[in-house]
Design a protein around this nucleic acid. Sequence first.
RNA 1: GGUUCCGUAGCUCAGCUGGAUAGAGCAGCUCACUUCUAAUGAGCAGGUCUUUGGUUCGAAUCCAAACGGGAUCACCA
Length: 631
Amino acid sequence: MESQIKQILEENSELLFGTTIDSKIIQFQKTRKDVEGDLTLVIFPFVKALRCSPEEAGNKIGTFIQEKMSYISHYNVVSGFLNFIISSDYWLSELDKIDKNPSYGFETPNSKPTIMVEYSSPNTNKPLHLGHLRNNFLGYSVAEILKANGHKVIKSQIINDRGIHICKSMLAWEKFSPINEKGERETPINTGLKGDKLVGKYYVEFDKQFNAEANSIIEQWNKGDVDDFSDKTVAEYIRLTESKVGKDEKATKGIDDKIKDLAKNETSLLREAKDMLVKWEARDPQTYLLWTTMNSWVYEGFSSTYKSMGVDFDKLYYESDTFVLGKDIVFEGIEKGVFFKKEDGSVWIDLTADGLDEKILLRSDGTTVYMTQDVGTAVDRYNDFPDLSGMIYTVGNEQDYHFKVLFLILKKLGYSWAENCSHLSYGMVDLPSGKMKSREGTVVDADDLMAEVVQSAKEMTQERGYLEGMTEEDKNDLFQLIGMGGLKYYLLKVDPKKRMMFDPAESIELNGNTGPFIQYAHARIKSLLARGGDLKSLNAKELEASEKEVIKLLVEYPSIIQEAGKELSPAVICNYIFELVKTYNQFYQNIPILIEEVEELKNMRLVLSKNIAKVIVSSMSLLGVRVPERM
RNA sequence: GGUUCCGUAGCUCAGCUGGAUAGAGCAGCUCACUUCUAAUGAGCAGGUCUUUGGUUCGAAUCCAAACGGGAUCACCA
């Protein structure tokens, strides 16, 4: 409709305006709710060309368009805005088209280039938490949205299964796990703990012991007992301590943190963890066995968590595989002159010319860092899928800098596809009580939270649901569907880029802008349709205002999917579906459907409802949310 | 301090490629179930869109500065 009007204006611009017009000045917008009209053209930009008042200009253009387009029944001009009223015929014919298209809003599958979407990518040293939920739901949803836009999508994750953090858990387990009467240390089997939880427990234990050791070193320093430490360290300690004099509380705390870091570097625990990493990279059999065992525990735990989340992956990458490639690339890069070596053997890239810093790629002991692995992983992926037209990394915005550097390094290494990589950077999830810190144990565990929302959905549904005749199994599935639907919708409805507040009480809320609100509307429509009998083809002639409003929104659906794809934002879908359901509910509440006596009207209202249900199911599927037949 | 993101109703968020009187949800106060699922709908109340300047016929939206908040600037990942 808009493009038709635009075309008419452009083709007849000489006639209307006496000059050719810039297509940019043709601006449409939705008509305000309190003004009569379905589509609004902004008149101000034309006023100059026409040299008359906005009122006259609007009338001139309005009359002209109305003559050319039969679907426009009339128009009005209000303070510089030309409002077209589009006839019921048009909306009914649109509804008919929508009704006949089972995959309405979706592009032909696999008709566009392949994109890889990476998400989740956890460390294997601790369980998944609330932040991972946002990440997973977001990544999964963006993948679905891109598919709906016609792209072939490969869902992938990189599992950070190596590195110093894993060694910390391994070391703590070896050192601190109690031995039972059978002579075994703790395992998921003999403790009944989920594997990821058990390993996480030892990561926390490491940190606890590590801090204790660092504190005792500081105490030692404070007493003046410095014989066991290098002159350099001692000098740094003295310098920091002296710099505290006369500083305010905040600055003093900052310096204390630095002293703590200094002390941490001197702990035997960290030294042992580092030794372990070196042994691991050298494929020491015992270390490797321990690593394999503990990782397998974690994978088992993760896989059950992913199942509850309802997410999956097409292709997994492991850092333990890709870091070697990363290392090779670094060596090549040195020869190409992209990287350089410092005296102590560490390898760096100088990005100061690009406004960034120097970045390390290999430590002086030859082991790799995060960046090295990511370089390797990226190259590995393009080797596996040479036709990738894009790669999207779903990673928190605290890593904005990392990805900026990563993409720049790839570019400098001469990979032409580097510019197709993008970072889907999302904001942190805050709790009302403050920030989550995994080391301090103030996290919201993903498994616990999911269990909680499902439990809450269960209580609520038992209280007010329509469950007669359902099997226990179906009921449990329904509770799962509602609880998870609520949680996913809650986490996805906020613009991904923004930091968001997670209120546990609100996340299990079922009224207002929530997943269950939308699921409920669907169940209600299904109940209508079940009683409505067979549907006939549309033959109604007129539309009530509230019916027209609903159809208008339905018509927007394809463009919403496009926008969500362009913005990589499931929130766009959420906002749309909420608006659609709200508008439908107004219609539902005010207009009789089954009890309507005029057959054409009843039939049309049922067809309309059916298509609302269709769009609810399809748009919710883009969020990874299932929708019940009844609730 | 450098870089970067953010600041809209009591709370949580939409709106931001400039356009009409800035919108939802929650919380508060009314009202509507003998009628299709009330997990709903209708209404009331709630705003100097952080501030100041600029661009423009027109600014929550663009630009600049200030103030306030977050992230980041590791031989952690």
